[in-house]
């Protein structure tokens, strides 16, 4: 009898261990993957940003050596690269210019995107899935190709200039490609779906009778829009703006394909610092500061998303 009970207990025990093991593996595998390939690399960037450049490959110093001990390692770190970033006006000009370009193009995307989202939400119900798909479709096509498409349009002999000359709006070709204007156009174009979708979601959720109620209480169409529609789509507007601003800030492809040599953006600077100058510590320091700049909008964005979710419930 005793042995039988033990066998049952043993089976039970084994099942419990199996279950625990499975749970452990389920959590551990993705966890370790992210630790090794996301967090650790990040710590390395931080470390390198505090190191000195050296000619030897890998081009940074000191390399971490357990024997040396942590104390010695820390003693070698310094903020020289960050000082360098402050002293050389190229960097802070690049940060400021990225900030300006990202903010302006976010505003432009909002101006272009809001009417589209509004039109979609007002469109007959049976059209909406199609319109929605038309907005999402470009998102699935290659980003690079969509930026490239504008290269042909904006160039001096391009489609836009041909049109301007033909229609008499301009007497000679305008230099648009390789200017900051082209970068604005590129950002608005590629990030437009990110702006449209959250605003559309907010507008579509809105109860139409709210507009009727506002009109019933004496609002004109325009004031009902201003007093009811805009405040109620605020969450979508904020989400859309962050979704455009955050990636635009670190954008590399658009300024390097459409922008000119005077278009300073920090993503491009980082790329050049890394690939052309091979100055890894400075590139790392540039990355660390870019991330610090982005922490504020990222946190605000998360908070806005949480608030939106709560208000939905």
């Amino acid at each position: 009898m005793g042995r039988h009970r033990l066998a049952v207990l043993d089976g039970h025990w084994r099942r419990l261990v199996g279950e625990l093991m499975r749970r452990f593996l389920l959590i551990a595998i993705p966890y370790i993957w992210l630790l090794a390939l996301f967090l650790v690399p990040f710590v390395i960037v931080l470390k390198i940003s505090l190191s000195d450049a050296a000619i030897a490959r890998p081009p940074y110093f000191p390399q971490f050596d357990w024997a040396e001990g942590i104390r010695a390692f820390i003693a070698e770190l310094d903020f020289e690269n960050f000082l360098w970033l402050v002293e050389d006006d190229l960097y802070w000009k690049a940060y400021l210019s990225s900030l300006r370009i990202a903010l302006t193009s976010t505003a432009l995307t909002l101006i272009v995107g809001y009417p589209i989202a509004y039109g979609m939400a007002r469109a007959p119900e049976e059209w909406r899935p199609t319109l929605m798909m038309l907005v999402i479709l470009p998102f699935w096509t290659s980003f690079l190709i969509r930026v490239y498409a504008w290269k042909g349009i904006l160039s001096n002999e391009g489609f836009l200039n041909q049109f301007l000359l033909w229609s008499g709006l301009a007497s000679e070709p305008l230099q648009i490609l390789n200017t900051t204007t082209a970068v604005y156009i590129g950002i608005v174009y590629t990030y437009l779906p990110f702006m449209i979708l959250p605003i559309y979601a907010a507008l579509e959720r809105m109860d139409d009778s709210l507009i009727e109620a506002a009109e019933d209480l004496g609002c004109s169409r325009l004031s009902a829009f201003w007093l009811v529609t805009i405040p109620l789509s605020k969450g979508g507007i904020i989400a859309g703006c962050f979704l455009v601003f955050i990636p635009a800030m670190g954008e590399f492809v658009i300024p390097s394909l459409l922008g000119g040599s005077d278009t300073l953006m920090i993503g491009k600077v980082l790329w050049e610092e890394f690939f052309s100058n091979r100055d890894w510590p400075v590139a790392s320091a540039v990355a660390v500061i870019l991330l610090l700049i982005l922490v504020v909008p990222i946190v605000l964005f998360q908070r806005n998303q949480q608030k939106e979710q709560e208000s939905e419930e």
């Binding site: 390939l37 690399p41 790392s284």
Partner: peptide, 25 residues
């Protein structure tokens, strides 16, 4: 918290930073 942070962070991380950090690793 760290786990969910590591899931959401790469979504908003500029590609240049992700790329650079992985290369250094």
């Amino acid at each position: 918290t760290l786990f969910s942070g590591m899931i959401y962070a790469p979504l908003v991380m500029p590609e240049v930073i992700t790329g650079l950090s992985l290369l250094l690793l």
